[in-house]
Computed example of a mutant assay.
Amino acid sequence: MLIRLGRLTPGYFRLLQRQVAGEVQTQPKDRMVNHIAMLLAIVGLGLSYYSTRKMTAQARSIPAP
């Protein structure tokens, strides 16, 4: 489900609050989009973790002058 951002008005914020509270139900149009979004999130977190580990490994291996 792709979320289109509308104008940032008080009415739009109330709509978002009602959706979070469960008063307004939205049906996903395609379940595959949810799976792809989850996969991209996991890949992004994994890449972030990998990059952080590489940076800390380099910082440890560089001798101080």
Rank of each mutant, 00 (worst) to 15 (best):
K29Y: 10
Q19D: 12
S48D: 11
I3D: 14
F13N: 01
T9A: 05
P10K: 00
L40H: 08
G44E: 03
L16F: 08
A59S: 13
Q25W: 10
M32L: 15
V43S: 00
A64E: 08
I36Q: 09
A37G: 09
A21F: 02
K54W: 05
V33Y: 03
F13T: 04
F13K: 11
H35K: 11
L40V: 11
Q58T: 01
R31V: 04
G44M: 06
R7E: 12
Y12K: 09
T52K: 12
L5G: 04
L40Q: 14
I42H: 01
R31C: 03
L39M: 06
A37E: 15
G46C: 08
G6Y: 04
Q17Y: 07
R18C: 00
E23N: 01
A37M: 15
Q17C: 05
P63A: 03
L39I: 01
S61D: 06
D30P: 01
R53F: 02
K29F: 06
V33W: 03
Q58V: 01
G11K: 02
R7T: 10
T56V: 14
T56D: 00
A41N: 13
A59T: 06
S48C: 13
Q17M: 14
T9N: 08
S51G: 00
G44C: 05
T9C: 10
K29N: 12
L15I: 08
R4W: 15
I3V: 15
T56Y: 11
S61C: 07
L39Q: 07
Q25T: 05
I3C: 14
I36K: 06
A57K: 04
Y12D: 08
A59R: 14
T52F: 15
V20H: 02
G46H: 09
K54R: 09
S51W: 14
L16G: 04
L47W: 09
P28K: 00
K54C: 01
Y49L: 02
T52W: 15
M32Y: 11
L2N: 01
R18A: 06
A37V: 12
V43P: 01
R7K: 14
